[in-house]
Amino acid sequence: MEQYSEKVMEHFRNPKNVGEIPDADGVGRVGNPTCGDIMELYIKVDKGIIKDARFKTFGCGAAIASSSMVTELVKGKTLEEAEKISNKAVIEALDGLPPVKRHCSVLAEEALKKAIEDYKNRQKDV
């Protein structure tokens, strides 16, 4: 398999924003053990801005690095900006992922989209 970039290794070694947010405003859970990875993304939103993001991930080095990176990318962004973060943006920020690991970045994008969707649904219920 292709080597991981130094950036991926950095985020694997010292992942940012690990954990849950007990009073999260939105939670996105994606993946299953059959495909190898499970990702949970928690967001805290204030006045349309993502103030905090945390993750819990069962997965390989690329999955952990992608989770860590996506939480870094969304912090401080408006929901509209965050919704536009694609898996490509995650790959670029990580200085690339081996082809067989690209699905990990897709999972990160999906987890983020689901967390935002969850936040929006909760707003409707109020």
């Binding site: 398999m1 694997f12 495909c35 190898g36 069962f58 390989c60 080095g61 999955a63 952990i64 067989v100």
Partner: peptide, 30 residues
């Protein structure tokens, strides 16, 4: 339980230990 093999082997590797895993993540086949 609850952890994925590639992550374990990567962390062990950082400590200088070489092992392998039956996880899909290293096989390239998913």
């Amino acid at each position: 339980r609850d952890v994925e093999g590639e992550s374990i082997i990567m962390m062990l590797d950082m400590e200088g230990i070489s092992v392998s895993t039956g996880s899909a993540c290293t096989s390239g086949t998913l």
